[in-house]
């Protein structure tokens, strides 16, 4: 008899788990997902022509800070640079790749330094010291004359993605 009882128990338990438990878990998971209105990509357009050299400009895109740094002639060039209107720019998401604090830019040393855990990046956004595991992340961008559109992947961005830079 206990075997038939066990069977009933397993059948009921299995049915409940499959028909009720799994869908409920899926519904709960989906309820925690970012809302469509949050996900709907915000596109941010930035005019680069007015930006002074070696001075960090911080824009906001999808709630995150975006670093834009116009490079002066004496700063080393890098494949990570965004070229627009004949000038070179460093463009990245301004969150340390360690744990997401916002590094500060020191124009004298031409370095980004993160106050949280001491990480450092050069003016091309490459990690040079401390715990950050990788360079500052380049957001999807599209160059449009003297302007840059954040959130849209243009040919330059796709090129960077292919070569593993972005």
């Amino acid at each position: 008899m206990s075997n038939r009882r066990d069977f009933m128990g397993i059948a009921l338990g299995g049915f409940t788990a499959l028909a009720g438990g799994l869908p409920a878990l899926y519904a709960m998971k989906r309820s925690w997902d970012p809302l469509p209105s949050v996900k709907a990509a915000g596109f941010t357009e930035v005019d680069l022509s007015t930006i002074p050299e070696n001075e960090l400009i911080t824009e906001k895109w999808r709630g995150k800070p975006i670093f834009i740094l116009k490079k002066s002639a004496d700063m080393p060039q890098d494949p990570r640079d965004v070229v627009a209107g004949g000038a070179r720019y460093h463009v990245s998401i301004g969150l340390c790749t360690h744990l997401g604090c916002i590094p500060a830019y020191f124009p004298g040393e031409k370095k980004f330094k993160c106050a949280c855990h001491g990480g450092e990046f050069d003016a091309s956004g490459k990690n040079t010291f401390g715990p950050p595991p990788k360079p500052l992340v380049i957001p999807p961008f599209k160059v449009d004359g003297n302007k840059i559109v954040l959130g849209e992947a243009g040919p330059e961005y796709l090129e960077m993605q292919k070569s593993g830079i972005a």
Partner: peptide, 13 residues
């Protein structure tokens, strides 16, 4: 991370 936050950064969700 985005799933836990319900957003790209800590926000209303």
């Amino acid at each position: 991370v985005e799933w836990i936050r319900g957003d790209y950064v800590p926000g209303q969700a």
